[in-house]
Design a protein around this nucleic acid. Structure first.
Length: 575
RNA sequence: CGGGAUGUAGCGCAGCUUGGUAGCGCACCUCGCUUGGGACGAGGGGGUCGCACGUUCAAAUCGUGUCAUCCCGACCA
């Protein structure tokens, strides 16, 4: 490709709406343009990157025995009603009507459709197990799309679905996919961690996520991991052993005390001169529009996804200050945030964390502003029926497997695998006939990779102050040849002949034949992120060109023929 | 859901207070000059100033509404 013809426009300045580096660089280097909120045009350079990630994914999925197909992007409401998700998926599901006023939606994921395909096409146990996948655009109407391709509304995803007759085969395929994923991300030049996670709206029991580890906020997930063993989990699922802390408040008598203006745990613990670990914290949440009171030892925080799962809700958020006062007054109390407690709340569901179990002679709110009860014990809170884990882990907690301290890092979720079981096959009556002649529901698994997000995550992981430093396997082109002065005949001749030699070898090469100053070409080359650069300049007088690897400082002067040979050798070993 | 800010050329921004024929830098086109890390000079093209309604002789500028974008908060009791 000649640079003069390449459809690309680099920008000198960052777009004003971009926050994270992948978004900034992909726009500046001319890979993407926003069409509307959370929806992007993939320009030619981007499309090349995406196709490469797709192809690596495709090759590894095929190698793992999966079969590719393509399902429709638009789906009928009825199918979603069969699975029961039409009602529960929420506003993220982009719903529309056709001209006959029939309900449709844009596919955010394809469990319903694939299940309908399976129930029509897979009739016998002899056809199983099977794994079907597609690579396609998805649409999820996110509340707040941001971070460019990392959290768009429309994005490209590889989604695979496996069907089996029993748990062992599901487990086998699950492991098979985990291996395939590892290879896919490795080939893309990405370091990932496989972590345990909550299975969320997709449903199912066991699930893992593949995270690209990054220290920036672009990683929207916190990952807890152990360096001594293989434990790693998303914060929404991580468990830990707790360090010893004081859980006995030491109060010798139970009494209500004045605690003016202690709206926070910090203020309360300071006022009473006690550690926060002897305070029982009561946090009011709204789960599916119903109030839920979470109880936890106050040196700890509530993990909302765990709480949501504990009360079997689909949506959860902390109650606003006004809501708290309103709910309090509905129960005959006059209390503001900071002073609420579990007693006397009638029908409000109460969920107590396991950290509460060991507390003695502690401090707790009693739904009266500026007052707390000290010296309380669990017998004073008959409202607690059971304990469960709704606690957010912290770095320094101990590994649940080996007991060593856990570390925490940010991660970008680029892939996930779920064991669905019969979550979809049962309600949708997707059955096969088993060897005993009986109809049984498929045991399903599903496996996703965010193709466009993987590309963005690769930029997050591979860039410097000058631009993108793509891994060779997913770079839009492998090499750029820069003749410093296109009016110099020798330079142009050498550049042109190297260009042709590389093309003949199947190397993806761009010849920067623009009549620009060298600085412009170098800046663009760095920004776009060609992994290799050949500069044809002054040293051509000695018959040499410069060979430079994008993410290394030094350049090497070698003969053109050698440069071609070297490039072919280096690139062929990766692609 | 609450608060704040911003919508002016493809991108980044000024102009708005005090209403009077819309500007700058980058990018784009032409010519000259230059050619090893985003040169320079001259000339040129491109914008219903987010949208609607209103005030006014006159609105980018004032008012009301609306839409969009971005940030912060959502809060840990």
């Amino acid at each position: 490709m000649k640079m003069s013809k390449l459809f690309v426009q680099t920008l000198r300045e960052n777009p004003s709406d971009a926050e994270v580096v992948s978004h900034k660089l992909l726009v500046r280097a001319g890979y993407i343009r926003k069409l509307t909120s959370g929806v992007y045009n993939y320009l030619p350079l981007m499309w090349r990157v995406l196709k490469k990630i797709e192809n690596i994914t495709r090759e590894e999925m095929d190698r793992a025995g999966a079969q590719e197909l393509l399902m429709p992007f638009v789906q009928p409401q009825e199918l979603w009603e069969e699975s029961g998700r039409w009602g529960v998926y929420g506003a993220e599901l982009m719903r529309l009507k056709d001209r006959h006023d029939r309900g449709m939606c844009l596919g955010p994921t394809h469990e319903e459709v694939i299940t309908s395909i399976a129930r029509d096409g897979l009739k016998s146990y002899k056809q199983l197990p099977v794994n079907l996948y597609q690579i396609q655009s998805k649409f999820r109407d996110e509340i707040r799309p941001r971070f460019g391709l990392l959290r768009g509304r429309e994005f490209i995803m590889k989604d695979a679905y496996s069907f089996a007759t029993n748990e062992e085969d599901l487990m086998k395929e699950y492991q098979n996919m985990a291996q395939a994923y590892k290879r896919i991300f490795e080939r893309c030049g990405l370091e990932t961690k496989m972590v345990q996670s909550d299975s969320g709206a997709i449903g199912g029991k066991i699930s893992h996520e593949f995270m690209v580890i990054t220290d920036t906020d672009a990683g929207e997930n916190d990952v807890f991991y152990c360096e001594s063993c293989d434990y790693a989990a998303n914060s929404n699922h991580a468990v830990s052993k707790l360090p010893e802390v004081q859980t006995d408040g030491g109060f010798t008598k139970k009494e209500v005390v004045d605690t003016p203006e202690t709206h926070s745990i910090e203020a309360l613990s300071k006022f009473l001169n006690i550690p926060s670990s002897v305070i029982l914290k009561s946090v009011l949440y709204i789960a599916d529009s119903k109030p839920v009171l979470a109880l936890i030892r106050a040196d700890r925080q509530v993990e909302e996804t765990k709480l949501m799962n504990a009360v079997l809700a689909n949506e959860i958020r902390i109650a606003a200050a006004g809501e708290i006062e309103e709910i309090m007054s509905n129960h005959g109390f006059n209390a503001v945030a900071g002073f609420i407690g579990p007693n006397g709340l009638g029908d409000i569901k109460i969920v107590a964390d396991e950290t509460v179990k060991d507390m003695k002679n502690f401090v707790v709110g009693i739904n009266q502003t500026d007052k707390h009860l000290v010296g309380a014990n669990l017998s004073d809170i008959p409202e607690i029926k059971e304990y469960c884990d709704i606690r957010l882990c912290e770095a320094g907690d101990f590994c649940p497997q080996c007991g060593k301290p856990l570390k925490v890092t940010r991660g970008i979720e680029v892939g996930n695998i779920f064991q669905l079981g019969t979550k979809y096959s049962e309600p949708m009556n997707a059955v096969y006939t088993d060897i005993d002649g009986k109809n049984k529901p498929f045991i399903m698994g599903c496996y996703g990779i965010g193709i466009s997000r993987t590309a963005a995550a690769a930029v997050e992981a591979h860039h410097d102050e000058h631009g993108i430093t793509w891994p060779v396997a997913i770079a839009p082109y492998h090499v750029v040849i820069v003749p410093v002065n296109i009016n110099d005949e020798t330079q142009m001749q050498v550049a042109q002949s190297m260009y042709e030699s590389l093309l003949k070898e199947g190397i993806e090469v761009v010849l920067d034949d623009r009549d620009e100053r060298a600085g412009v070409k170098f800046k663009d080359a760095d920004l776009i992120g060609f992994p290799y650069r050949i500069t044809v300049g002054k040293s051509i007088a000695e018959g040499l060109v410069e060979f430079k690897i994008r993410n290394l400082e030094e350049t090497v002067k070698i003969e053109p023929a050698q440069a071609v040979e070297l490039l072919v050798e280096k690139i062929k070993e990766i692609i």
